[in-house]
Structure formats: C-alpha cells, structure tokens
Design a binder for these strands. Structure first.
Length: 431
DNA sequence: TCTGGGGTCCTAGGACCC
DNA sequence: TCTGGGGTCCTAGGACCC
C-alpha cells in the first residue's frame, strides 16, 4: 500500500502558522511580482477566487471583502516543508518527497500490523500539532489511487465527513471512489487529454479505468497512458523513490519587476541568473556543457506581437564556473537580442550536466575554467554569499548602475518575514 | 498600468557528419 | 536503371506535474 500526504492550501497555511490573525480570513499567496494567485485558503476559495488568476483583476473586491494577500515567501515555505517531511520520515519506512507539499509513503506490509486508517489519522494529527500545517492522507494500492484517495479525503473533510483520511483497500471502495472523481482530476490527465476523453464520452475516473488499452496507448501518450490505466485498476507501476534522480537541468528565469528595453539591463538579469545557476551546479557537484539563454516580451500584448527566443550554446568544456557561464550567457543574449522591444522576462537553462571534475576533456587552448585557482575563487564566492547573503559578491555585469536598485528586481509588496530562517526576523513574543 | 517558476519527457525537422 | 543507415546538434514546441 501507498500513502499520499498532501498539505492543505500549503502556502496559505504556512502564512497562518506565524500570523494567527489570518485564521478564519480569506488569504491568498501571490506569485513573484505579486502577479497571480497561486494559493488560496478555504475562505478565499469560497469567495470564488480561481487558481492562477491575475491578482489585479480581483484585488479590489477581494480586499473589500476582508481578504489578505501575501507576497510569496519561498524561504518560509521551504523550511516548513522540511519540518513536515522530516516528521513523515520518522513515521514511515520510506518516503518520496514528491513536491514541496506532498509526499508518498511506502506502507507495504504495514496493514498486517496496523489499522491503516487509524495510523494515518494519527500521523495527520501529529503533523498538525508539531508543525501547524494541516494535511490530508490517502492510502491505496497504487500511487495514482492514493492521489485519488487523498483528493476525496480532502473533499469529505471539507463537507464535515471523515477525518481527512481515506483508505481504499478493497475492490468495492476502489470502484466507488473512481466513480466520484472527474476524469480531469486524475493524476496524469492534463488539459489536452481531458478534452480528448470528453470527446469520446469519458467523464469519470471509473470510465477512464475501463477504456481499452490500445485506445489509451494511441491517444494518451503511449506507454504513459497504459501505465495510468493499470494504476487506476489497482496494479502498481511505480514505487516510492527515496533518492531523487541526479538532476538533468538547472533553470533560472524570472519576470522583471518592470518592462526593460536596454540590453545592459536585461544582461544584468541574465548574469544574475547565470550566477545563481552556477551556484546550484557547485552545490550539487555538477558541471554543464549546454547553456541556453531565453528572453520574452509580454504574451498579452498584441502590438507589437509577442517575441520570445532562445539561443543554446555548446561550451567547449563542461563547467561550473560562474565567470565562464556569465560570459557565454552574454554571448547568447547578443544572439537573440532585438533592439526596441519591451522585454518582461529572461532566463538561463543549463543542460548536458555531468559530474564536475570527472571525465572532462581539456580544451586545446587550456580553458581557464578548469584551473585550480578558479575553483578556489568559486569556493570563496560561495562562502561569502553563504555567510553574508545571496548576492553579497556578484559579477560586475549583475551590478546595477551606481545609485540605482536592480532594474529587473521583483515587486513584492506584502512579504511576511522569514520567521524560521533569519535571526533578524524571528517571531517576537511580548510579555 | 498590472498575467509565476521550476522541472521531466517526448517529438520532429533541418543541417551536418561519417 | 538502381540512390543507405546511423548519428549529433540545434531549434522549437507540446504534454504533463507541482
């Protein structure tokens, strides 16, 4: 059996842990630049706010009805996530941290020793007590069915039924559960496939489990679709993965806080992303052979039509050196730059990752990136930024003009403190 | 005025190589 | 008259997940 623990309204719940005055009020958390609604408390959902809606479209009414909007605070959410995951790891023999707010638990063999519903309810209560985060738990013979069980546990808890826990352990329960889930809510069925399924009259997960294998293979992404059907029918096709795979890419991209048209300013953003990506490579002991730079103008403007472009460069030697990555990133930007446009976003992607220092062919001309002195410089850079904060030491291209703040910097008008990760922002208790 | 970020996996065509 | 097979690199896009 598999368990799926999913935090309820995770980002909004994190905000509430340290701001109890938000309890009972509609709360939303906004994406970077305070752009879109990315998390909603139950009260905000009840007001009809949709996931992903641009905040400016709903702001006036939401605030007038007593709603509170928070800028995203990923430092806080990351730390709260670590607390939840750490506790789950104490309770289950194997845990797959699937996302910031979800984990699969390996419960094989446990039903012989525990009443799983009771056990899951206990875990749920303990997570709430220890971290302040409410969760729901689904338990079933496959990961896909555990997702279904979790979804129904949440729905029932909201309707005042059940205890935020649902175990599907026999055929009748499985069938009943699948009949209650719309096909577009099944894990692995996205927007496009839901459309195809509706077109042939498949509306529920139960109906999906009954479509022919050949049809699924042809229309739902080949082997991916076939696996999905098996899992819905109760045959497990994937286990709990405790060790995450070695990463295959690093992507750093961000919308600017304002429209930019000067290459020097966009270059500053690109240099910042290249440096952050380099930091991640060094942290993971990896080096990149391919570097892609991307830029975009607004997708929502009609005149001039939206422009987006990318340039992929093959580096002569795989590297994790920030100065080298920055240099190549600037070249990439020059290749795709079109003057006179209103850019809103830029990014850097690193692919072709290999273990740093292993199997790297030296360049004919002795690329400086492989030199021990440069490796030492990078260690010093990381140590300084670790001690004094990200961006304490930067490449010159990422430094804004004297006396100005970063023109590409984010808007974040309502960010809560880093309650758990910065000494200066700890919760204050007044006696 | 204002519309997120970070991933994985797959497909496909053109240029080029042997 | 008969015109291959296998590979990489690049760009672009589509599907899915959170």
């Amino acid at each position: 059996m598999f368990g799926l623990v999913d935090c309820n309204n995770f980002y909004a719940s994190c905000e509430r842990v340290f701001r109890p005055e938000l309890e009972g009020r509609p709360v939303v958390v906004l994406s970077n630049n305070d752009g879109c609604v990315v998390a909603r408390s139950q009260e905000a959902k009840a007001l009809g706010l949709k996931m992903g809606v641009p905040y400016f479209q709903v702001k006036a009414e939401f605030e007038q009805r007593g709603g509170v909007a928070c800028s995203s605070n990923y430092e806080l959410y990351g730390d709260m996530s670590r607390r939840v995951m750490w506790y789950l790891q104490q309770r289950a023999p194997a845990v797959e941290i699937y996302s910031v707010d979800e984990a699969f638990l390996d419960l094989h063999g446990m039903q012989q020793h525990f009443d799983l519903a009771g056990w899951a309810g206990d875990v749920r209560g303990a997570v709430r007590q220890r971290t302040g985060i409410p969760v729901c738990v689904g338990v079933a013979p496959t990961k896909t069915l555990a997702k279904v069980a979790n979804r129904l546990a949440k729905k029932d808890a909201l309707a005042g039924m059940g205890a935020g826990v649902l175990v599907l352990d026999d055929e009748a329960q499985r069938r009943e559960a699948l009949s209650r889930v719309p096909v577009q809510d099944v894990w692995g069925v996205g927007h496009k496939n839901a459309g195809k399924l509706y077109a042939v009259g498949v509306r529920t997960a139960a109906q999906l489990a009954g479509v022919g294998d050949a049809w699924a293979r042809k229309n739902l992404g080949g082997v991916v679709g076939a696996r999905l059907l098996h899992e819905l029918r109760g045959f497990s096709c994937s286990g709990v993965v405790v060790e995450p795979d070695v990463r295959k890419s690093v992507c750093k991209s961000r919308s600017f806080g304002q429209v930019l048209s000067e290459m020097e300013q966009v270059a500053g953003a690109v240099a910042t992303h290249a440096a952050r990506a380099g930091e991640i490579l060094r942290h993971d002991g990896l080096a990149a052979r391919l570097l892609t730079v991307t830029v975009e103008t607004s997708r929502f403007a009609n005149m001039p039509p939206p422009y987006s472009s990318s340039a992929q460069l093959t580096l002569p030697v795989a590297t994790d050196d920030t100065l080298t990555l920055t240099k190549w990133a600037q070249r990439g930007l020059e290749r795709i730059w079109r003057p006179g446009l209103r850019y809103v976003k830029a990014g850097v992607v690193l692919d072709g990752l290999e273990r740093a220092g292993v199997n790297q062919q030296a360049s004919l001309f002795g690329d400086v990136a492989t030199s021990p002195a440069r490796a030492k410089l990078m260690r010093a850079l990381d140590a300084l930024n670790g001690r004094f904060g990200t961006g304490a030491v930067k490449v010159a291209a990422a430094v804004p003009a004297p006396g100005t703040r970063e023109p590409w910097g984010m808007r974040r008008n309502a960010k809560s403190p880093a309650f758990t990760t910065k000494w200066g922002e700890l919760w204050q208790v007044k006696c």
